[in-house]
Write a protein that binds this DNA or RNA. Sequence first.
RNA 1: GGAAAGGUGGCAGAGUGGUCGAAUGCACCGGAUUCGAAAUCCGGCAUACGGUUUACCGUAUCGGGGGUUCGAAUCCCCCCCUUUCCGCCA
Length: 424
Amino acid sequence: MLDIQLLRKDLASVVTRLGSRDFTLDAAHFEAIENERKDLQTRTQDLQAQRNTLSKQIGMAKSQGLDASDLMQQVPAVNTALVDLEARLGTLQNEMQTFLAGIPNLPQDGVPVGFNEEGNVEVRRWGQPRSFDFTPLDHIDLGESLELLDFPTAVKIATSRFALMRGDLARLHRALAQFMLDVHTSEHGYEEIYVPYLVNADSLHGTGQLPKFEEDLFKVGDNLYLIPTAEVPVTNIVRDEIIPIENLPIRLVAHTPCFRSEAGSYGKDTRGMIRQHQFDKVELVQMVHPNDSAAALEELTGHAETILQRLNLPYRVMALCTGDMGFSAARTYDLEVWLPGQNTSREISSCSNFEAFQARRMQARFKNEAGKNELIHTLNGSGLAVGRCLVAVLENYQNADGSITIPEALRPYMRGIERLQANK
RNA sequence: GGAAAGGUGGCAGAGUGGUCGAAUGCACCGGAUUCGAAAUCCGGCAUACGGUUUACCGUAUCGGGGGUUCGAAUCCCCCCCUUUCCGCCA
């Protein structure tokens, strides 16, 4: 959520900056409800003050044994006027909240301007795509011929966009998550954390998935949703909290499944493990002092890159352009890993600085140097998406005979085996 | 799922219709004392919003929502959550 003060003071510039991400802010509508709100609020508060004064006088009179009936006669008229004003003010304030909650974050200066992924800018590139002396297969052909990856059975059990892994492939999947957690906790200073996989609407509102993106979520029961990312439960740890300044920065890492309805992505990536209703992800989350968030994003992105480097998977870092960034982000880097079986790069991590956008929704604050409460800045990034990482390992480490070499870094998690072979 | 008790400021904990945004203690921040510190003493210390604009005024907030009343932390109704006991259970 943006600071409403900013809209009041500098509406024109907010409109311009949001325009760069292809969002049209209805400035006239804002000004209309803002003006009416101001008028209603001052009138309401004046009447409330009147009523409070009268009631106080009645109390004083009665405690002195005096007759208060004159005063008491004056109150109903005030109350009648108030009932109407308070109702209108309430409606208007809700309207304002809804309006504000639907506005995306302002892109930082320096974010490339563009309306779609065409506008993204490659920042750097790491690793050399391997050259094959045979035609590399994609992960589906590899996994299925090894009989370690089974989509039809997953469809039977659940529905499409689910996967079933067996044997050493399932183990490799687990190994990846373990490896990631170990690196982030022991080398990057993150605290490992285990969180609920169901969250309430308040939490989803705090990180920005609600109210706008309900259709992307799986809803369970009245007020619970399956998490679309660990970002939601982990970031909401600080909702409604005032954090002692010496506790910043907070760095948390969690390995969770993620559930996405993928509504509106019919026909997209229907084959394979790239786009699933359920996938595992190791998520990095940071809560930092506002002065430190820009540096923290670079650092956090580097933490995610470390995993790809240790696995020797070639990737590139993309600075997302204004129009391609998520709703809550002020700046985002995507990591795209090279997938030889598909002859393309695919997103495997998205690292974002949300500045105070989520913190304002969550009322997550710290006591600053002056002793005043100030909103923290939040960041997060995948470190990494486990399922897509598995895809990358399969495709990059495949051999001519269809077996998969286990990356060195994962062997300690794989009982030392060096290859994935056909399931026997 | 059944029964009971309870949800008040950073924490603990008073407050059962009026001058209560809320006693007291702890924590925290200033100051005094001290060579310095501890102890002691004095003062300050919730949040959000609005108006005015450095220090001011107003409004709202005592789990959430609704109601009664001139007036609600306090009374009534609904919901949520917590704790304890019972049942069930990984």
